[in-house]
Design a protein around this nucleic acid. Structure first.
Lengths: 210, 210
DNA sequence: GCAAGGTTCACCCTTTGGGGTGAACCGCTC
DNA sequence: GAGCGGTTCACCCCAAAGGGTGAACCTTGC
C-alpha cells in the first residue's frame, strides 16, 4: 500500500500551495507529484485533484481534458460547493470523485485514499454525513419536482419563457404552470426573486453566458 | 526594519494554510503570528489579513470586529474580487488595505510591507495596474452612469420597477428609462440577463435577502 | 455659447410575465 | 378503484416589463 500519487490542478498559487501544504504532513500517505498552474501533468499520477476555485471556474472542458489524459488515473473534483448539480455535472463529465473543501486535512487524505481504492466517490462532509444520493436534484428538499427544478434552472440561466419552451419541447403554457408552482414552493413573487433563489441554492451552472 | 507581524483570519484550513505556506518562503520579511480559524487574535500583530473566501463571506461585522480589536494594527482584506463595491465597503468598514488574491507570493509580501509602512492601500494587480480610484462604482468601465449602476444594483437585489421607484424617490418612468439605457450598455435584453450581468460584475451585496 | 452627456419625466405602445381555472393523462399507493 | 401528485396543456385576464420618442433641466468642457 504505497502513497497515493496526486497532481494538483489549479490556476492560483495560493490555492495550490494550500493544498500541497495541507498534504505535506501526510507525505507518507499522499505524494504530491505535480503542483502546476495550468501546465500539463508530466508523469503518471493516481489522482488529479482538480480545484474548482469557488465554483467560478470548474468547467466541463477542463475536467474532460484531464480525464482524457493518459497519465491521469482518476480525476477528482475538489470544491467548495456541495450542490448536487455541480456534483452531478462533474461526475457526468468523467470525474471519478468529488471532495468538499470543507474537510480538514485528515479528511482529504482519507478521501483520496478511499477513492484510489475504488471506494466511495463523494466526500462531502466531516465523517458520518447523511449519504448524498447522486440521483438528487437541487431544490428537491424544498419540494420542487424534477421538472420544476429544471425550469427554474433555465430561468437561472436567464432564459425567457419562450426560450425555455423551445429548449424543453414543452408548450409555453406548461412552462407558465411550472413557473407558477415553482414560485409558490420557493416563496418567490417574481422572476428575479426566483433567479436569486436559484443562485443561492446551487442552480447556476459553472459558466453562464449572458 | 523587522518582519511584518501578520495574523491570518479565515474559517477554512486549506485557505489559511495556503497563505501561511505562501508566506513561509518570506519568513524573514513576514512573520505569521496566528493562523486561526475563528479564534481570537492572541498577541499584537501589525496586520490582520482577513480572507473573504471568494466573496461569499466577508461581512462588514467581521471586519469591524477585527478593526475594533486593540491587538490588531491594520485590517487588510484579502479577496478574489476586485469589484469596486466590495473594496469600497471593506474600506468604509475600517479596513486599512485591500489585496488581490490573484497576486503571486512576492506581490502579497510587498503589498503587506507597503501597507504596514503606511503606503498604498490597494494592491489589485501584478505591478503596474491602472490605479483604481476608490470613488469608482461598479460598471463604470462598461459605461454605466452612477444612476444606471444604482438602478442595476437594485434590480440585482430582486426589486421590481415600482419598488425601485419608491426607494429612489424617482418616477417609474425614469426607472424605465434608466433600465433601458442600462440594457443597451451592458447588452442585456431582459431583466434576468441584466441581473446575471450584475452578479458577475460585483453588483451583489454581501448578503441578499430574497 | 453651445455641444455632450447625465438626470428626470411623460406619453405612447407591444410583449412578456404571472395568476386563476379546468382538464386530461400517467403512475403510485393504500 | 379511489386518491394523490406529477406532467402536460388550453384559455382567459391583468399587471409588469420593455421599447420608442420627445423634452426639460443641469453640469462640464472646448
Amino acid at each position: 500500500m504505497d502513497a497515493v500519487r496526486v497532481a494538483l490542478v489549479n490556476d492560483y498559487e495560493v490555492v495550490a500551495r494550500g493544498v500541497a501544504e495541507m498534504l505535506r504532513t501526510y507525505r507518507n500517505r499522499i505524494h504530491v507529484v505535480e503542483l502546476d498552474l495550468n501546465k500539463q501533468v508530466g508523469e503518471h499520477v493516481d489522482i488529479a485533484l482538480y480545484d474548482t476555485f469557488a465554483a467560478t471556474r470548474g468547467d466541463r472542458s477542463e475536467v474532460r481534458d484531464l480525464v482524457s489524459n493518459p497519465l491521469v488515473g482518476v480525476v477528482v473534483v475538489y470544491s467548495w460547493t456541495l450542490e448536487p448539480v455541480h456534483i452531478e455535472s462533474a461526475m457526468s463529465n468523467g470525474a471519478g470523485g468529488y471532495i468538499s473543501k470543507g474537510l480538514p486535512a485528515a479528511g482529504l487524505v482519507s478521501a483520496l485514499e478511499t477513492i484510489r481504492a475504488g471506494g466511495k466517490q463523494l466526500h462531502l462532509e466531516q465523517e458520518d454525513a447523511q449519504t448524498v444520493i447522486v440521483g438528487d436534484w437541487p431544490g428537491r428538499e424544498e419540494g420542487l419536482s424534477e421538472r420544476e427544478a429544471e425550469i427554474l434552472a433555465l430561468i437561472t440561466q436567464g432564459l425567457s419563457n419562450a426560450e425555455i419552451a423551445e429548449r424543453t419541447y414543452l408548450s409555453i403554457n406548461s412552462i407558465k404552470t411550472y413557473i407558477r408552482n415553482c414560485y409558490r414552493r420557493i416563496g418567490a413573487d417574481s422572476r428575479t426573486n426566483a433567479l436569486l433563489w436559484g443562485i443561492e441554492h446551487g442552480f447556476r451552472p459553472d459558466r453562464v453566458r449572458i
